[in-house]
Design a binder for these strands. Sequence first.
DNA 1: CTGAAAGCGCTTACAG
DNA 2: CTGAAAGCGCTTACAG
Lengths: 332, 332
Amino acid sequence: MNVTIKHVAERAGVSTATVSRVVNKDTRISAATREKVEQAVRDLGYRVNTVARSLKSKRTRSIGLLAPEFANDFFMRVAEGVEDRLAEDGYSMFLVNSRESLEREQLSLGLLIEKQVDGIIIIPTSNEAEYIEAIRRGGTPVVLVDRLVSNFHGDAILVDNEDATYNATRRLVESGRCSFGFIGGRPHVTTAVERHAGFVRAVEESGCRVDPNHIQFGDFDEESGYTLMEAIMNTANPPDTIVLGNYFSHLGALRYVGTHRDAVPKSLFFVSFDDTVLSGIIGIPSIQIAQPVDELGRRAAERLLLRINGNSSFPYQVERLRTRITEYGIAG
Amino acid sequence: MNVTIKHVAERAGVSTATVSRVVNKDTRISAATREKVEQAVRDLGYRVNTVARSLKSKRTRSIGLLAPEFANDFFMRVAEGVEDRLAEDGYSMFLVNSRESLEREQLSLGLLIEKQVDGIIIIPTSNEAEYIEAIRRGGTPVVLVDRLVSNFHGDAILVDNEDATYNATRRLVESGRCSFGFIGGRPHVTTAVERHAGFVRAVEESGCRVDPNHIQFGDFDEESGYTLMEAIMNTANPPDTIVLGNYFSHLGALRYVGTHRDAVPKSLFFVSFDDTVLSGIIGIPSIQIAQPVDELGRRAAERLLLRINGNSSFPYQVERLRTRITEYGIAG
DNA sequence: CTGAAAGCGCTTACAG
DNA sequence: CTGAAAGCGCTTACAG
């Protein structure tokens, strides 16, 4: 059996209340008592049982992080930012995989509630997820990251998807390019929608005509990046400037280029969300939109901690962090 | 205030004991009572408070997973395997980042113990970590993954690092190659040690001479992959067959090749731990040692669950999963 | 088949 | 500055 506060109390010759006070750094304990207790704690190797503590205090100092998958550098860098910030305040994090499934997401949310987490951070699987708002209404603070959900009335930390894509595309228009293609994601993911909107806005302003066959939507994964790049390159008059919705599309498109050098225009240029040096290595110049990924996680944790610590009064807020443009392999 | 078992009991007109039994699917409850209670549960939206349950039952149905970093595809695919297997049994997972720091690792372990986790899975930061054995001795089941720790007398799920590297290297010797370089990791990581040993064994058997300057040790990260590749290529007589200790070294080495095409031998060939299509895209043929990553995680979870469920008697075991060799860009 | 009651290991308002 | 006691929300041995 494990050593409890009772054992410590006995050994130190005080009440359990006193032990609790020492352990919790209550200041009105005499130095002598404190030392007696601390000695007993050391002697017995006592560690507080946070389960018992939580039952009494109604706080578990743990939160849930729900992500659509783990083998995804973007999500896990967000997770790293979250964990980092939480650790500073002594909070722990349950990590749950929703596997891009609404059903699992909802189920997992229920389990987290049963675990009595103090709050939940979600990278939502889809923008249709009313149960998230229900959880929030139920009194558990919720912060969304990266993607938004319809009819959610809580905090969210996102990036400036539309503006960033608009600006990057516009930059290429200004440098004289006018033959565009686009590889995006599904409309149930808000990042996909926003990035597409930014692209469309820039192109419409430019007056350049885009062949509808050059605008393709996939799953933001490597496979569809490859397939859609292939589809675009196999059209009669393939564009030489491809705007890519995320890192994995970019990888897939690069794989296509790497294995079909002759099938792509010599003047090929990529614009891509997320940062990778690979484009430059493979020899395709690019503009990349770097997201402040750790910051995204840290801010989400920060916001959640604020809510947990009673600041439920201040208005809910959708915060958009600024991305940063980097260039690879551009002469000059 | 949240709805508790008491509220349900009142509404259903039964005792809290009965509610508990219904919730826990105790079979000796009459159908009529069960239905009354289930109705009350639905009406009130009752969910069990697992904190209270755990205090009584001494089981939290949660475990801790300690990883050296998150932004690492290998570790997170292990984590995915773990979570997957755990979810099948209704267990949850605290994910903690040890940041490749012994100090943080030890500290985090303490916090997990306070959280009363039922068990812990660790990808250790270093092979010098006596406190891990101490935790295990303290009665919390511990399973190591990927890396081993000295003087640890518990379960571990690893891969056949030495054999795999030996076999892959040998294969190249047999195909006529005899000019080798090696990019490995630090000796406090057992995977680095084992892979190096496999390489050395194959080379020694081959009779090929390896210039000590062609054997380099870094941090298993992209940066050192690049730097060490550069160092090797800048020697008087650079080898054309490079054995790489892991995925990130491989990436870094590829970046060097991509940006220094003229500085590398035409016959350059890579042997690498971990799987990536990039080598082929960049045009360097390679043999790659694919690890059964999810399986690694799943097996670790499986083993831990066995231990948690009372099977602490059967002997501790270091299990080595088999890797699989894949080839890229090899004519023929 | 069901209930009364004890108890898991803490914290804290109250009293002194 | 310290202790006795109640109580957090469950589970379960015991009794009927």
